Simulated scan of single mutants.
Amino acid sequence: MMGQMPEPPYYAVIFTSRRTEGDQGYAEAAERMVELAREQPGFLGVESARGEDGLGITVSYWASEAAILAWKHHPEHSAIRERGRSTWYSACHTRVCRVERAYEFKQ
């Protein structure tokens, strides 16, 4: 992402996960979730990284807690979340934070 964000406050959802072996449709589903999230009211952006050891961190940014809850309850997102728990992740953790301040550096 590393793009233009609004002035705080806004919200960040931090999703940390450890992948299971093999793709099993994961890459396609992850791409679809980003595409679908971008269509949601209040979505501001997403950043994601995954290490060689399978540990991944995805941070999505939202304008409000209501937007986060709407995303959480979106039927397609709910179905993919359940598939993640049953197939793609050996462990995962979600944290919701309010961003009070933000700083950036560019060269």
Rank of each mutant, 00 (worst) to 15 (best):
Y26L: 15
G51A: 13
R19G: 00
Y11L: 07
R38Q: 14
G45H: 12
A12N: 06
V34E: 12
L36V: 10
I14P: 02
M33S: 03
D23Y: 12
A30G: 14
P41G: 02
E28Y: 03
G22Y: 04
E52H: 11
F43P: 00
G45D: 08
E39C: 14
S17D: 01
V34S: 12
L44N: 01
F15C: 07
E47D: 15
M33R: 03
R38T: 06
R38N: 09
T20Y: 03
L44K: 02
R19P: 01
M33E: 04
R50W: 03
E47V: 09
E52S: 14
G25A: 08
E21D: 13
R50I: 15
Y26N: 05
G22Q: 11
T20F: 01
G51D: 10
V34K: 11
V13G: 01
A12H: 06
S17N: 07
A27G: 05
Y26P: 02
M33T: 06
V34D: 11
Y11D: 04
Y26D: 00
Y11P: 01
G42W: 01
E31R: 15
G51P: 00
F43Q: 00
V34Y: 07
Q24V: 01
R18P: 06
R18Y: 12
V46P: 03
D53K: 03
R50V: 15
S17Y: 12
R32A: 12
A37S: 14
S17C: 10
Q40S: 06
Q40H: 03
G42V: 02
A30E: 10
A37T: 10
G54W: 00
Q40R: 09
E47S: 14
Y26T: 01
P41M: 02
Y11I: 00
G25Y: 05
A37R: 09
